[in-house]
């Protein structure tokens, strides 16, 4: 199957530090692909190369045949790539409903639209979509609240809803369960499983092995900027190199 996101020979240096070294990665459509690795392995750097925050020194990143190199973040999003941040980034002063309507407008009307004369009150279809999406992630009853008043777990759900309302072709998640209690983590796993079952391709960066092994179809292990192993979860579990580098030789 042709891959939806193709990363070839990507190198990135920060001064003397080699953050990414000849990284190759193929993300297949409809799969959940996890990128794991110890701190400083280059996971976040790699993700930032997908979304336009960083430009690789060498190498190509191609999404559905479009090169993503030197595209601005909003252009990459308009191609169908949505991103969830490690610390939820939401429109804190706005209501939940507005938070979800904004990405919908972005998807519908493009990167800029001088839609200054139509009242919001008339946007019932958009409102309906946003309400539906909020209900989907379990925030339906809170739609009139201001986003800043949410708990951290709810903020993450909101951010997910903001991404999903755009019906992205590729969803990038940067540690979606970081800092969550066990129960919250399990809820998030269930939510992400539901999303995956709808056929949305996902790339997940995660520390929590429990999350990785319950979600991923395929795992790439990154260490010191290299991809040291790649394969199905069971292969990765048994791979001695992974245990050596990532887990310090301990059994998973």
């Amino acid at each position: 199957m042709a891959s939806i996101l193709s990363v070839q020979n990507v190198n990135k240096r920060f001064g003397g530090l080699k953050a990414l070294d000849e990284v190759n990665l193929e993300i297949e459509p409809g799969t959940v692909h996890a990128i794991i690795g110890p701190n400083g392995a280059g996971k976040s750097t790699l993700l930032n190369c997908f979304v336009g925050r960083l430009t690789p020194d060498v190498g190509t990143v191609t999404f559905e045949g479009h090169s993503l190199i030197r595209l601005a973040p909003h252009e990459i999003n308009q191609l169908g790539v949505s991103r969830v941040f490690q610390t939820p980034e939401i429109f804190g002063d706005l209501t939940l409903l507005e938070n979800v309507m904004i990405p919908y407008f972005a998807k519908r009307d493009g990167a800029f639209s001088l839609n200054a004369w139509k009242p919001m009150a008339g946007q019932n279809d958009v409102r309906g979509k946003a309400e539906e999406m909020l209900a989907d992630v379990g925030l339906g009853e809170k739609h009139a609240m201001v986003a800043n008043s949410l708990s951290r777990g709810d903020k993450r759900r909101l951010e997910l809803a903001m991404c999903l309302v755009q019906q992205p072709k590729l969803l990038l998640l940067d540690e979606p369960t970081a800092g969550m209690a066990r129960a919250d983590t399990n809820n998030t796993i269930d939510l992400l499983k539901t999303i995956a079952s709808r056929g949305i391709t996902m790339v997940v960066i995660e520390h929590d092995m429990h999350v990785v092994f319950s979600l991923a179809d395929k795992i790439s292990v990154l260490a010191q900027g290299y991809v040291i192993a790649e394969g199905a979860p069971n292969d990765i579990k048994g791979d001695p190199r992974v245990q050596e580098v990532y887990l310090g030789g301990a059994e998973i």
Partner: peptide, 10 residues
């Protein structure tokens, strides 16, 4: 930042 990653040119 969120706007940019939401496909909007600020």
């Amino acid at each position: 930042n969120r706007m940019n990653y939401t496909g909007l040119n600020t």
